[in-house]
């Protein structure tokens, strides 16, 4: 039997109760999963918490797993749904405060998660950079769930329209439309910051 990818074979081992295979999947996908959630909700600590819930759900759903598509497609469908539920739970259509955005620095000081790119410019440039990041985050958070996921997967993960369509359960044409509408919104939101 052939599988779409090596991760699918690992997932089928997880289905048999193989925790070592599960560990390999977590190691392999921790970065993209946390990265996507972080970009969606803008909070690194919550991103890790949600990422853990994603992986726990993967393990718990292993018995029902059917290798119909790539493992990553199935995984990011779970991520998309959890993030969407998190937004609903919070009733979250509000802008975050600037202090909240500054968790990038606070997190690093606490010795926890680390921003990948840590440039250390002068204070005024750093403040401008923080404001820009705040605007980017707020703009992404204000997008509807499907647009947000499409933007993150396309812009940061480099996924194709076809792959995004599988995650969102829609057509390729719909993905094109989602991305276009999201980009128009982002263009207006980020005007003056580009």
């Amino acid at each position: 039997m052939t599988f779409p990818d090596a991760d699918t074979a690992l997932m089928l081992r997880v289905k048999q109760g193989d925790k070592a295979a599960f560990r390999m999947l977590v190691e392999r996908y921790q970065q993209p999963v946390i990265g996507m959630i972080y970009r969606a909700i803008g909070d690194a600590w919550e991103a890790e918490d949600l990422a853990q819930r994603v992986f726990v759900r993967v393990y718990q759903s292993a018995q029902r797993y059917q290798p119909r598509a790539k493992f990553s497609t199935w995984l990011f469908t779970i991520v998309h749904n959890l993030v969407r539920n998190e937004y609903r739970r919070r009733g979250r259509h509000r802008l975050e405060s600037l202090e909240h955005v500054q968790e990038v620095d606070a997190g690093a000081e606490r010795g926890g998660w680390q921003p990948v790119d840590q440039a250390t410019p002068d204070p005024s440039t750093a403040a401008a950079e923080r404001e820009l990041q705040y605007k980017i985050r707020a703009a992404i958070e204000q997008l509807p769930a499907a647009q947000r996921t499409a933007v993150i997967l396309c812009r940061y993960e480099g996924w194709t329209y076809e792959e995004i369509a599988e995650v969102l359960g829609c057509s390729v044409g719909a993905v094109k439309s989602l991305l276009h509408r999201a980009r128009l919104t982002l263009k207006n939101q980020l005007r003056g910051y580009c």
């Binding site: 921790q30 992986f55 998660w113 921003p115 990948v116 790119d117 820009l132 263009k187 980020l190 580009c194």
Partner: peptide, 24 residues
């Protein structure tokens, strides 16, 4: 295109140490 480029300036985060063990 400028807005799309600007999105790329948002920082990424790496998982904190011990994330895998905590998940297990």
């Amino acid at each position: 295109t400028a807005a799309w480029e600007t999105l790329g300036r948002a920082p990424a985060v790496a998982p904190s140490a011990g994330f895998v063990e905590r998940t297990l």
